[in-house]
């Protein structure tokens, strides 16, 4: 574990892997640590954003270091079923890149349980991991200026759903009508770290 200060505004905790990030996040998320305003899990780091007026970074660092990292990683949350129409603009391209048929892409995407590893790209967006290794594809060489809300995409080993219309560079394989993000709903985001996801082909 390395703890890297971001002036008086944050402590970036660098860990060995995503499981350790999840373990520390799980251990810290229900503690009310004075001066810590946000926890931001990412692929190899957990950022503690601080309110400089109320945080004692050295005390918080000591607390982080003596916090046992939960061995189970991320607490398992509910299972979310996401109905998908597999009509994405890049479905043929993904089939070509993976050597699968379009049908095969759909079967791989619906064939495993995914899980939200972390967020960050936009409110309500979740990076989903746990998919079939056969679905690994690079991002598009050129980003689209507008990806519609609900678009379901792949990039690297991740899958994701665009919470609202935005620019984006993921390979689009389908779309869902499920509102994964609604600020006036509790909870606003359906895809929170730990939530398990099953994609299902919409009839």
């Amino acid at each position: 574990m390395r703890v890297l200060p971001l002036a008086d505004s944050g402590l970036l905790v660098e860990l060995d892997d995503l499981d350790s990030v999840h373990g520390l996040y799980t251990a810290l998320r229900h503690q009310r640590i004075p001066g810590v305003v946000n926890l931001v899990p990412a692929a190899r780091t957990l950022l503690l954003q601080l309110d400089p007026r109320h945080a004692d970074p050295e005390e918080i660092e000591r607390l982080v270091r003596r916090t046992p990292v939960e061995p189970g990683g991320l607490a398992t949350e509910e299972l979310l079923r996401i109905p998908v129409v597999y009509d994405g603009a890049d479905l043929a391209e993904v089939a070509a890149l993976t050597g699968l048929t379009e049908r095969g892409v759909v079967e791989e995407h619906t064939g495993t349980e995914w899980r939200v590893a972390f967020g960050g790209f936009a409110p309500g967006f979740g990076y989903l991991t746990g998919g079939s290794a056969r679905l690994e594809v690079p991002r598009r060489s050129e980003s689209r200026t507008r990806v519609p809300r609900g678009a379901v995409g792949l990039a690297g080993s991740f899958s994701g759903v665009y919470p609202r219309s935005s620019p984006g560079g993921w390979q689009l394989i389908g779309h869902t009508d499920l509102e994964i993000w609604r600020p006036d709903r509790k909870p606003p985001a359906l895809l929170r770290p730990g939530v398990r996801v099953r994609f299902e082909e919409a009839g």
């Binding site: 950022l47 954003q49 967020g119 309500g124 606003p188 985001a189 929170r192």
Partner: peptide, 11 residues
Amino acid sequence: RTGAAHIGVGV
């Protein structure tokens, strides 16, 4: 806004 960065909401 605080407490929602894990779902992509900045301050």
